[in-house]
Each structure stands twice: as structure tokens, then as C-alpha cells.
Design a protein around this nucleic acid. Sequence first.
DNA 1: CGGGTGACTTTAC
DNA 2: CGTAAAGCCACCC
Length: 111
Amino acid sequence: MEVGAKRESDFYTRVYKIVANIPVGRVTTYGLIAQTLGMKSSARMVGYALNAGAGSLDFPFHRVVNRNGDLTGKRYFNTPFLMKELLISEGVGFIGDRVNLKLYLWNPEIK
DNA sequence: CGGGTGACTTTAC
DNA sequence: CGTAAAGCCACCC
């Protein structure tokens, strides 16, 4: 029937769908997701959306980092260092405390 | 409808 | 590399 004509009006749902599509061993940024949604100026809302879904949904929000590749969301984790450990465990490379976006940045797309 | 908030981003010093 | 300030848009009360 309608090819996605339903269009999830929920901004959050959009973010969840993209985050859920992030392949293992890859990461993406808030601004990039926002841009994919057509609102590059609403990068804050992306992280906000994850916080709203976190706790209720099982999304790999640890794969979402900021523009610098820094794990800004680690402070919302039960154990902050866990976020970095998870990424390393998945094969994501780090430069100090930041993700090597040069090699592991993933380009989000709406499925 | 209005005010407050925020897991961002950019620019500036 | 550090902090500070402004812009930004969606959600909550």
C-alpha cells in the first residue's frame, strides 16, 4: 500500500528508526541524524529524543556521538565508561577519548 | 499560547 | 585545548 506514506509524525520515532539502523562497529552524529530528518538545526532534539526513548527502548544510543566524536551521552548511562567500552567491543576505533569518525562515521538514511 | 529545558553546533577569545 | 554565548527546534507544564 502506501510506501511509508503514513510518515511517523513523531520526531522521536524518526530518530529511533535511524539509530536502530546503525550497523555494528559504526557510529553517527546528532547533527547528521538531524540533517537526515531535514532539520540540521535541531541536533539537540536528536539527543533529546534518545533520552526520551532510553529506558523504555533498547536502542544502541551509545553509537550516537557528537560532531567531535566525543561520547557526550555517556553521562546518561548507568556507568559512563560503559559507553566507550561498548563501542570498543564492537570494533570502533578511538583517538584518545573520541571516536575515530574518519574511519567509523556512518551516514544515516531513512528506511 | 507562553516559558523553560536540553545526549548539539558554531563562532569567538 | 579551555570556557562563553547565541542559535536552534521539539517536548513538557
